[in-house]
């Protein structure tokens, strides 16, 4: 049953950056876009299971820190080799100064 979980405070993630969030044995990435919106994806790259939290956010792209593969974190779409498989995304809502993600 999906449930909304508090992932972080809005101030925990700088604009055009991300942080790691672990919950229930899974790892997620929480993004703060340049226009101030929040997004969430799976925390590991689909190529080699590397944590994306050490990667670089450029606009709406997250680049994996190991092999420089890129995803659009808004849709999870794989954008640059060596990633071929899209990243799973999760619904996000902001309530006051808290960021929630809906996890399965």
């Amino acid at each position: 049953m999906p449930q909304w979980i508090r992932a972080c405070a809005t101030g925990d993630v700088e604009e055009e950056d991300l942080i790691r969030f672990d919950h229930g044995g899974a790892t997620y990435a929480i993004y703060h876009s340049p226009e101030g919106r929040f997004y969430a994806t799976a925390g590991l790259c689909t190529h080699e299971n590397v944590h994306l939290c050490d990667g670089l956010v450029m606009g709406h792209l997250i680049e994996c820190p190991k092999h420089n593969g890129q995803f659009d974190y808004r849709t999870g779409a794989a954008k640059r080799a060596p990633v071929c498989v899209d990243l799973r995304t999760y619904p996000v809502k902001v309530d006051g100064s808290d960021v929630f993600i809906e996890v399965p």
């Binding site: 190529h47 080699e48 190991k66 092999h67 080799a81 060596p82």
Partner: peptide, 10 residues
């Protein structure tokens, strides 16, 4: 070689 080098880094 794009893929070979990815493996080299892994």
């Amino acid at each position: 070689w794009r893929w070979s080098h990815a493996r080299h880094h892994t």
